[in-house]
């Protein structure tokens, strides 16, 4: 099981306010699919408009990155810049 942290805003919409959820996944693609299954809409939201930070590195287009139970995974809005 991997631990996925969400912002409180995202949590209030998709996970009944739980800011940390556990899913079974070996990479981000599987994680997103598992989150969509357990919390309908969340996976889609992540794909459309969120970034995933793994161990402090923000990834705007994560897909194949490996994750395990020791990974710090955080879902946050996409960031661009001027």
């Amino acid at each position: 099981m991997i631990k996925v942290a969400l912002t409180s805003g995202t949590a209030s919409q998709y996970t009944d306010g739980k800011t940390e959820v556990n899913v079974e996944a070996k990479n981000v693609r599987q994680m997103v699919a598992a989150l969509e299954r357990d919390f309908p809409g969340l996976g889609t939201e992540i794909q459309q408009s969120m970034s995933v930070a793994i161990d402090g590195v923000i990834l705007p287009d994560p897909y194949l990155e490996a994750v395990d139970e020791d990974s710090e995974i955080f879902i946050l809005p996409k960031i661009g810049g001027g």
Binding site: A5, T7, A53, G56, V57, I58, E72, F74, L76
Partner: peptide, 16 residues
């Protein structure tokens, strides 16, 4: 009060 390596930023990510 400032962030340093290992600080969990207020936006949820741990700084390197």
């Amino acid at each position: 009060n400032g962030a340093r390596e290992g600080t969990k930023a207020a936006y949820g990510v741990t700084f390197g």
